[in-house]
Design a protein around this nucleic acid. Sequence first.
DNA 1: ACAATTACCTGTATGC
DNA 2: TGCATACAGGTAATTG
Length: 274
Amino acid sequence: MPELPEVETVKRTLEPHLQGKKIIAVEIYHPGVIAFPGVDEFCKLIEGKTIQSLGRRGKYLIIQLSGGYYLVAHLRMTGRLVLAGESDPLASHTHIIFALSKGLYLHWVDTRRFGRLYLAEKDTAAFVAGLNKLGAEPLDDSFDRETLAAICSGRQRPLKQILLDQQLLAGIGNIYADEMLFLAGLSPMRPGESLSRDEIDRLYEAMQAVLQQGIANQGTSIKDYVDGFGQRGKNQDFLKVYGRAGKPCTRCGTVLVKKKIGGRSTCYCPLCQG
DNA sequence: ACAATTACCTGTATGC
DNA sequence: TGCATACAGGTAATTG
Protein backbone atom coordinates (compact mmCIF):
# COMPACT_ATOMS: atom_id res chain seq x y z
CA MET A 1 0.00 0.00 0.00
CA PRO A 2 1.37 3.42 -0.83
CA GLU A 3 2.57 5.00 2.40
CA LEU A 4 5.23 7.69 2.69
CA PRO A 5 8.17 5.63 1.34
CA GLU A 6 6.11 4.33 -1.59
CA VAL A 7 4.80 7.76 -2.60
CA GLU A 8 8.32 9.16 -2.26
CA THR A 9 9.60 6.40 -4.55
CA VAL A 10 6.88 7.09 -7.12
CA LYS A 11 7.78 10.76 -6.97
CA ARG A 12 11.49 10.08 -7.49
CA THR A 13 10.95 7.65 -10.35
CA LEU A 14 8.45 9.87 -12.18
CA GLU A 15 10.00 13.29 -11.68
CA PRO A 16 12.91 13.15 -14.16
CA HIS A 17 10.58 11.88 -16.89
CA LEU A 18 7.64 14.20 -16.26
CA GLN A 19 9.48 17.43 -15.68
CA GLY A 20 9.05 19.81 -18.60
CA LYS A 21 6.53 17.58 -20.40
CA LYS A 22 3.31 19.08 -21.71
CA ILE A 23 -0.04 17.42 -21.07
CA ILE A 24 -1.47 17.16 -24.56
CA ALA A 25 -4.64 15.23 -23.86
CA VAL A 26 -6.37 13.27 -21.15
CA GLU A 27 -8.73 10.32 -21.47
CA ILE A 28 -10.91 9.46 -18.51
CA TYR A 29 -12.56 6.04 -18.40
CA HIS A 30 -13.70 6.27 -14.81
CA PRO A 31 -14.82 9.77 -13.81
CA GLY A 32 -15.09 8.85 -10.11
CA VAL A 33 -11.31 9.25 -9.82
CA ILE A 34 -11.60 13.00 -10.31
CA ALA A 35 -12.57 14.41 -6.91
CA PHE A 36 -12.23 18.06 -7.95
CA PRO A 37 -13.32 19.86 -10.08
CA GLY A 38 -15.93 18.24 -12.39
CA VAL A 39 -14.63 15.99 -15.14
CA ASP A 40 -15.26 18.44 -17.99
CA GLU A 41 -13.59 21.26 -16.08
CA PHE A 42 -10.71 18.95 -15.17
CA CYS A 43 -10.03 18.08 -18.81
CA LYS A 44 -10.35 21.67 -19.94
CA LEU A 45 -7.97 22.93 -17.29
CA ILE A 46 -5.28 20.27 -17.56
CA GLU A 47 -4.86 20.12 -21.32
CA GLY A 48 -2.00 22.33 -22.44
CA LYS A 49 -0.39 22.63 -19.02
CA THR A 50 3.30 21.87 -18.55
CA ILE A 51 4.60 19.78 -15.63
CA GLN A 52 7.06 21.84 -13.64
CA SER A 53 7.99 19.75 -10.62
CA LEU A 54 6.85 16.94 -8.34
CA GLY A 55 6.51 17.03 -4.57
CA ARG A 56 5.15 14.93 -1.75
CA ARG A 57 3.29 15.68 1.48
CA GLY A 58 2.40 12.70 3.64
CA LYS A 59 0.92 10.13 1.26
CA TYR A 60 -0.02 12.76 -1.33
CA LEU A 61 1.85 13.25 -4.59
CA ILE A 62 1.81 16.87 -5.70
CA ILE A 63 2.40 17.73 -9.36
CA GLN A 64 3.03 21.40 -9.96
CA LEU A 65 1.75 22.60 -13.33
CA SER A 66 2.20 25.79 -15.31
CA GLY A 67 -0.20 28.64 -14.65
CA GLY A 68 -0.15 28.16 -10.88
CA TYR A 69 -2.11 24.89 -10.98
CA TYR A 70 -1.49 21.78 -8.90
CA LEU A 71 -2.52 18.21 -9.63
CA VAL A 72 -2.71 16.44 -6.29
CA ALA A 73 -2.92 12.63 -6.24
CA HIS A 74 -3.73 10.19 -3.46
CA LEU A 75 -3.20 6.55 -4.39
CA ARG A 76 -5.01 5.23 -1.31
CA MET A 77 -4.83 1.41 -1.36
CA THR A 78 -4.17 0.11 -4.85
CA GLY A 79 -3.53 3.19 -6.95
CA ARG A 80 -0.63 3.28 -9.40
CA LEU A 81 0.83 6.04 -11.55
CA VAL A 82 3.00 4.49 -14.20
CA LEU A 83 4.85 5.69 -17.28
CA ALA A 84 4.02 4.01 -20.56
CA GLY A 85 4.76 4.21 -24.26
CA GLU A 86 2.40 4.47 -27.20
CA SER A 87 2.10 0.75 -27.82
CA ASP A 88 2.26 -0.53 -24.24
CA PRO A 89 -0.76 -2.69 -23.43
CA LEU A 90 -3.23 -1.26 -20.93
CA ALA A 91 -3.19 -2.81 -17.49
CA SER A 92 -6.61 -3.83 -16.28
CA HIS A 93 -8.27 -1.16 -14.14
CA THR A 94 -6.61 1.65 -16.10
CA HIS A 95 -8.94 4.58 -15.45
CA ILE A 96 -7.08 7.58 -16.86
CA ILE A 97 -4.47 8.11 -19.56
CA PHE A 98 -2.48 11.32 -19.78
CA ALA A 99 -0.89 11.84 -23.18
CA LEU A 100 2.30 13.88 -22.79
CA SER A 101 4.76 15.47 -25.19
CA LYS A 102 7.59 13.32 -26.65
CA GLY A 103 5.21 10.35 -27.04
CA LEU A 104 5.14 9.63 -23.33
CA TYR A 105 2.04 8.46 -21.47
CA LEU A 106 1.11 8.41 -17.82
CA HIS A 107 -1.44 5.81 -16.73
CA TRP A 108 -3.62 5.96 -13.63
CA VAL A 109 -4.38 2.39 -12.62
CA ASP A 110 -6.39 1.52 -9.53
CA THR A 111 -7.99 -1.87 -8.88
CA ARG A 112 -10.16 -0.79 -6.00
CA ARG A 113 -10.84 2.72 -7.24
CA PHE A 114 -10.22 4.40 -3.90
CA GLY A 115 -7.54 6.73 -5.27
CA ARG A 116 -8.41 10.35 -6.05
CA LEU A 117 -7.13 13.27 -8.12
CA TYR A 118 -7.58 16.96 -7.35
CA LEU A 119 -6.80 19.85 -9.70
CA ALA A 120 -6.86 23.52 -8.75
CA GLU A 121 -4.76 26.57 -8.01
CA LYS A 122 -2.51 26.26 -4.98
CA ASP A 123 -4.70 27.20 -2.03
CA THR A 124 -7.82 25.59 -3.43
CA ALA A 125 -5.96 22.39 -4.26
CA ALA A 126 -4.55 22.21 -0.74
CA PHE A 127 -7.99 22.72 0.71
CA VAL A 128 -10.00 20.30 -1.41
CA ALA A 129 -7.36 17.57 -1.12
CA GLY A 130 -7.05 18.08 2.64
CA LEU A 131 -3.34 18.91 2.58
CA ASN A 132 -3.63 21.67 5.16
CA LYS A 133 -5.10 19.27 7.72
CA LEU A 134 -1.99 17.06 7.69
CA GLY A 135 0.26 16.78 10.73
CA ALA A 136 4.05 16.72 11.01
CA GLU A 137 6.17 15.46 8.11
CA PRO A 138 8.30 12.72 9.70
CA LEU A 139 11.39 13.08 7.50
CA ASP A 140 11.36 16.86 7.38
CA ASP A 141 14.26 18.69 9.02
CA SER A 142 11.81 20.48 11.29
CA PHE A 143 10.52 17.22 12.75
CA ASP A 144 12.55 16.58 15.89
CA ARG A 145 12.21 14.75 19.21
CA GLU A 146 10.49 17.74 20.78
CA THR A 147 7.79 17.69 18.13
CA LEU A 148 7.21 13.98 18.66
CA ALA A 149 7.11 14.48 22.44
CA ALA A 150 4.49 17.22 22.00
CA ILE A 151 2.40 14.94 19.76
CA CYS A 152 2.44 12.10 22.32
CA SER A 153 2.03 14.16 25.46
CA GLY A 154 -1.46 14.43 26.88
CA ARG A 155 -2.82 11.75 24.58
CA GLN A 156 -4.26 8.60 26.10
CA ARG A 157 -4.76 6.98 22.70
CA PRO A 158 -2.57 3.96 21.95
CA LEU A 159 0.66 4.62 20.03
CA LYS A 160 -0.62 2.65 17.07
CA GLN A 161 -3.50 5.09 16.63
CA ILE A 162 -1.30 8.13 17.10
CA LEU A 163 1.14 6.94 14.42
CA LEU A 164 -1.72 6.33 11.96
CA ASP A 165 -3.48 9.66 12.59
CA GLN A 166 -2.65 11.78 9.53
CA GLN A 167 -3.58 14.95 11.38
CA LEU A 168 -0.80 14.26 13.88
CA LEU A 169 1.82 12.54 11.71
CA ALA A 170 1.59 12.50 7.91
CA GLY A 171 2.44 9.52 5.75
CA ILE A 172 2.57 6.57 8.14
CA GLY A 173 0.30 3.61 7.33
CA ASN A 174 -0.32 0.21 8.86
CA ILE A 175 2.85 -1.49 7.64
CA TYR A 176 5.38 1.11 8.75
CA ALA A 177 3.54 1.84 12.01
CA ASP A 178 3.93 -1.78 13.11
CA GLU A 179 7.55 -1.89 11.97
CA MET A 180 8.60 1.27 13.81
CA LEU A 181 6.92 0.17 17.04
CA PHE A 182 8.79 -3.13 16.88
CA LEU A 183 12.12 -1.42 16.23
CA ALA A 184 11.47 0.96 19.12
CA GLY A 185 10.54 -1.95 21.41
CA LEU A 186 7.26 -0.31 22.34
CA SER A 187 3.85 -1.93 22.74
CA PRO A 188 1.32 -0.62 20.20
CA MET A 189 -1.19 -0.34 23.06
CA ARG A 190 0.91 2.05 25.15
CA PRO A 191 -0.86 5.39 25.68
CA GLY A 192 1.06 8.26 24.09
CA GLU A 193 1.30 10.17 27.34
CA SER A 194 2.94 7.23 29.14
CA LEU A 195 6.21 7.44 27.20
CA SER A 196 9.39 8.42 29.02
CA ARG A 197 11.93 10.76 27.44
CA ASP A 198 14.06 7.76 26.56
CA GLU A 199 11.13 5.99 24.91
CA ILE A 200 10.27 9.09 22.85
CA ASP A 201 13.86 9.10 21.63
CA ARG A 202 13.67 5.40 20.71
CA LEU A 203 10.41 5.94 18.81
CA TYR A 204 11.87 8.93 16.99
CA GLU A 205 14.95 7.00 15.92
CA ALA A 206 12.82 4.02 14.86
CA MET A 207 10.55 6.25 12.73
CA GLN A 208 13.54 7.71 10.91
CA ALA A 209 15.20 4.34 10.38
CA VAL A 210 12.08 2.50 9.21
CA LEU A 211 10.94 5.21 6.77
CA GLN A 212 14.43 5.76 5.36
CA GLN A 213 14.97 2.04 4.91
CA GLY A 214 11.61 1.86 3.14
CA ILE A 215 12.71 4.53 0.68
CA ALA A 216 16.15 2.95 0.25
CA ASN A 217 14.37 -0.31 -0.69
CA GLN A 218 12.03 1.46 -3.15
CA GLY A 219 9.00 0.72 -1.00
CA THR A 220 7.11 -2.33 0.23
CA SER A 221 5.31 -4.42 -2.42
CA ILE A 222 3.00 -6.80 -0.60
CA LYS A 223 0.47 -6.98 -3.39
CA ASP A 224 -0.24 -3.99 -5.56
CA TYR A 225 2.38 -1.33 -5.06
CA VAL A 226 4.81 -0.52 -7.88
CA ASP A 227 6.87 2.58 -8.65
CA GLY A 228 6.59 4.93 -11.63
CA PHE A 229 8.24 2.32 -13.87
CA GLY A 230 5.94 -0.47 -12.70
CA GLN A 231 8.78 -2.03 -10.66
CA ARG A 232 8.15 -3.68 -7.32
CA GLY A 233 9.98 -2.53 -4.20
CA LYS A 234 12.16 -4.77 -2.02
CA ASN A 235 11.20 -3.70 1.47
CA GLN A 236 8.72 -6.56 1.93
CA ASP A 237 11.76 -8.83 2.34
CA PHE A 238 12.91 -6.86 5.38
CA LEU A 239 9.69 -6.65 7.41
CA LYS A 240 10.07 -7.84 11.01
CA VAL A 241 6.45 -7.98 12.19
CA TYR A 242 3.91 -6.89 9.54
CA GLY A 243 2.22 -9.95 8.05
CA ARG A 244 4.23 -12.30 10.31
CA ALA A 245 1.63 -13.11 12.98
CA GLY A 246 2.07 -16.67 14.22
CA LYS A 247 5.72 -16.72 13.17
CA PRO A 248 8.65 -16.42 15.57
CA CYS A 249 10.05 -13.01 16.47
CA THR A 250 13.35 -12.44 14.62
CA ARG A 251 14.85 -11.06 17.81
CA CYS A 252 13.64 -13.39 20.61
CA GLY A 253 11.76 -16.27 18.96
CA THR A 254 8.46 -15.60 20.72
CA VAL A 255 5.40 -16.17 18.51
CA LEU A 256 4.21 -12.83 17.08
CA VAL A 257 0.66 -11.80 17.93
CA LYS A 258 -2.07 -10.17 15.82
CA LYS A 259 -4.61 -7.89 17.48
CA LYS A 260 -7.03 -5.18 16.38
CA ILE A 261 -6.18 -1.75 17.71
CA GLY A 262 -8.44 1.12 16.77
CA GLY A 263 -10.02 -1.20 14.22
CA ARG A 264 -6.69 -1.85 12.46
CA SER A 265 -4.91 -5.19 12.49
CA THR A 266 -1.64 -4.91 14.35
CA CYS A 267 1.28 -7.37 14.56
CA TYR A 268 3.75 -7.21 17.41
CA CYS A 269 6.03 -9.24 19.68
CA PRO A 270 4.45 -9.61 23.13
CA LEU A 271 7.91 -10.01 24.70
CA CYS A 272 10.12 -7.45 22.89
CA GLN A 273 7.27 -4.94 22.89
CA GLY A 274 6.04 -5.74 26.39
C1' DA B 1 -15.62 16.09 21.81
C1' DC B 2 -14.32 11.92 20.96
C1' DA B 3 -14.27 6.99 19.61
C1' DA B 4 -16.09 3.31 17.12
C1' DT B 5 -18.32 1.80 12.97
C1' DT B 6 -19.54 1.94 8.14
C1' DA B 7 -18.96 3.08 3.20
C1' DC B 8 -16.20 3.02 -0.61
C1' DC B 9 -14.13 -1.20 -3.95
C1' DT B 10 -12.16 -5.63 -5.74
C1' DG B 11 -9.01 -9.59 -5.49
C1' DT B 12 -7.61 -13.32 -2.81
C1' DA B 13 -7.92 -16.76 0.62
C1' DT B 14 -10.70 -19.63 3.50
C1' DG B 15 -14.64 -22.63 4.93
C1' DC B 16 -18.35 -25.67 3.86
C1' DT C 1 -16.47 -27.18 -8.19
C1' DG C 2 -18.99 -23.57 -6.56
C1' DC C 3 -20.73 -20.49 -3.42
C1' DA C 4 -20.70 -17.49 0.62
C1' DT C 5 -17.88 -15.05 3.73
C1' DA C 6 -13.84 -12.68 5.73
C1' DC C 7 -10.13 -9.88 5.13
C1' DA C 8 -6.93 -6.46 3.38
C1' DG C 9 -6.26 -1.10 4.28
C1' DG C 10 -6.73 4.95 3.69
C1' DT C 11 -9.89 8.16 4.53
C1' DA C 12 -14.48 10.40 4.74
C1' DA C 13 -18.82 10.11 6.57
C1' DT C 14 -21.80 8.54 9.93
C1' DT C 15 -23.25 6.74 14.24
C1' DG C 16 -22.97 6.14 19.22
